[in-house]
Design a protein around this nucleic acid. Sequence first.
DNA 1: CTCCTTGTTGACCGTTCGGTCCAGAATTAG
DNA 2: CTAATTCTGGACCGAACGGTCAACAAGGAG
Lengths: 200, 200
Amino acid sequence: MQQPGRPREFDPEEMLSKIMHLFWENGYEATGLSDIIAATGMGKASLYSAFGNKRAMYLKALAQYEILMVDAAVAILRAHDRAPLDRIDAYLSAPLVAVRDEADRRGCFLCNAAADRASLDGKTGALVLRGYGKMRSAVAAALQDADPDLDAASIARNAQLIVTVYSGMRVMSRSGMEVADLALAKDAVLANLTPPQARA
Amino acid sequence: MQQPGRPREFDPEEMLSKIMHLFWENGYEATGLSDIIAATGMGKASLYSAFGNKRAMYLKALAQYEILMVDAAVAILRAHDRAPLDRIDAYLSAPLVAVRDEADRRGCFLCNAAADRASLDGKTGALVLRGYGKMRSAVAAALQDADPDLDAASIARNAQLIVTVYSGMRVMSRSGMEVADLALAKDAVLANLTPPQARA
DNA sequence: CTCCTTGTTGACCGTTCGGTCCAGAATTAG
DNA sequence: CTAATTCTGGACCGAACGGTCAACAAGGAG
């Protein structure tokens, strides 16, 4: 069964994904409607009827990032078929792999949004906080898996540390910093998670 | 002795400082010439003759931030009248104090520039990298002071970690994250710098 | 006082911005 | 078929954008 009226000629999710990549790479203000029109091939009126105005497009793009990228990272952190510390290693390696293997210096849309729009737009801030919260919870769960006897305070501290380092690496990668330098922070964190006295 | 011609009616450094705060708070694209005119009280032509176009204003504002804020942080990290780990504590506490005591959620202009402009403008990227480099060197020096026997690799790792955490906290603070949450990352880092076996 | 240089002011420039509107095209229901 | 509904393409909008220019003001040098 189909709605009456002319059917749309595009896949909304696919178009939203293209919009997401634009905002991700260039930020809110530096992305123009003209860029979105060029990237999607859609007409302006179709864009507006499908997604609303520019701010709504940005918010939807950010929400889509949360689904596509944040939730994927969370899934890795919660994957029970890998060792907990391996999952955290993978989480912190993603920013380095992106730069090294794909020359992708877009960073993390969530982190970019924090720097770019969150302090000017409450809804953006709320989305960003939710994304950070998801990641921190997932990291905390992995830490708990790694050592079930660890106290809650230590877990909270280390989970926050890991997400903060993730955020810092992603932002710094946008400035063109060398992968080798970025990687030192990951190495330091992981070294501290497996302190000398824990290695028999 | 004075230059021939009409004397300027403003203090360039003071005006540049006002421009810096605008770009710092709102980023490059979201700051309009009209905002700069309103904040400085200068005419448009005076602005252009004094600082060049908008991009030049941004670059000069970022350079001024490096002098006013980054160099100040470096000075604290290199202050020999405080214990080395206290200096690092102070460095990592600055992002928290700003939020708690002054409700200042502008973050760090350097970090904002990394997320905002560095990937689109090479000169911005170069300035950002230089600023990060300064901070990392100063942190490394403090770590060396704290333990002169530490190997270079450990120092490099921990210095990068500390700057990365600094950057992450600053960015996350813009999203409205609670100070208590932000602070956990600092606590975790400092706890790792003074591991249990080091406390006699 | 006259020249020369520099700074200020405000009008003005073309472009681009985000956003709206409407005529026409494409579909379903009857 | 017609009517109703929905989507598309492009013209159009006022406002704001970054940037320039020329007339004028304010000082020093001679």
